[in-house]
Nucleic acid binder design. Structure first.
Lengths: 207, 207
DNA sequence: TTTTGTGAAGTTTTTCACAGCG
DNA sequence: CGCTGTGAAAAACTTCACAAAA
């Protein structure tokens, strides 16, 4: 069955919330309580969870530890994902130090940049190569996913040089521009200025 | 009329694309061409633009400069938005130096942190205050929107102290946690690990 | 002829409402 | 009795298909 993107996003939120509730010692949680904590309708929570089998207990709710494990399985990788990061600027560096990344599930193995000051060194303990050698390095290191944090004017060129690698499966694009890729490569965009503009658009509406 | 969130997001993409086409000297563009450049259906582009009146020319397409101005108006603020940023860590600092922010439309006026090394200083030329004084400072400086880049365990406390300010209208939340706010305050979440997890979920599916 | 603008159709996603089970 | 699981209904969003305009 095909699971909708919005559902997957919420599964991550449920997973995160359950880790918190578990750490706080809570044993059982209802769809209503989860909804309240995540600003979602209880029926939405139940519908999302129902796609993966009956996991709750009627009249009781969901067992926190059990549901957490269940979601962990759904979201778990076939093996630890190997990622590379292209563009070790401010944002790229911030992501390298980002605490919320789940280091059991994936790791940033390789960096790329075009700055010769950075190339050849280790940054946060991760080797940095020149972007021109990306294809060979990505193949040699079995990189599955690239995080792209380059300026928008460099984005498509970077993409064009990395999509030729045959092992690459996905790109998380932070560059504020649309990139064009072959259809066998998945792209998700994290577009910070789009999110800010959306917020400002609706803030304006309610004034 | 209520404009859907997905439409607003695409308007920002159109606006950005038109700036680029304009800079490249292109005079006219069709919905088909815009769709191709942004990986969207032509009919989607036309439908989105049609919500704001007839702006294209049948048989010709859209006049680049005119459509750009049109979108500029739609997305323009009533005045330059005044923003504050809470949490001057790696991610917060990266955003302070972020090139893609449209500095004509909004500016980051004030910073907040709980690190006494930062409080009282200017960072990137912007004064930094202690988070405990957020409410007074936000009111005094007429801050409309807060960018929240604090660790997840601090997020709700920060939110609770800033939502009491009466001028605050919206929060752009980068913390990897759900925050609960009064209903008159708009929240948009930029959840980096959720986006990465979504990508990895679908990468797994196609393997 | 080309390409827009747009009702209508189609698709997806969310919400409802209640049967079913512990 | 309370809360889940889930068809069915409603809402939201996208795509189609074509009339109308340049």
């Amino acid at each position: 069955m095909k699971i909708a993107e919005a559902t997957v996003a919420r599964l991550v939120l449920y997973h995160r919330l359950l880790a918190k509730l578990h750490a706080e010692g809570q044993k059982v949680v209802s769809s209503q309580e989860m909804g309240k904590l995540l600003s979602l309708k209880a029926s939405q929570v139940r519908k999302d969870l129902s796609y993966f089998g009956e996991i709750g207990k009627r009249g009781v709710g969901y067992h926190v530890a059990k549901l957490y494990e269940h979601l962990d399985d759904i979201l778990s990788p076939p093996q630890k994902w190997r990622m590379g990061l292209v563009g070790v600027g401010h944002l790229g560096s911030a992501l390298l130090g980002y605490k919320a990344f789940d280091t059991k599930k994936y790791g940033i193995e390789i960096l790329f940049d075009n700055d010769l000051e950075k190339v050849g060194n280790e940054i946060f303990g991760i080797p940095c190569y020149h972007i021109d050698h990306a294809c060979r390095i990505i193949n040699e290191n079995n990189i599955d996913v690239i995080i792209l944090t380059v300026p928008s004017n460099a984005a498509q060129d970077c993409v064009d040089s990395i999509v030729k690698c045959n092992g690459l499966k996905g790109i998380l694009n932070f560059s504020p521009t649309s990139i064009i890729v072959p259809e066998d490569i998945l792209v998700y965009n994290v577009d910070i200025s789009v999110e800010l503009e959306k917020l400002l658009f609706y803030v304006k509406q309610i004034m």
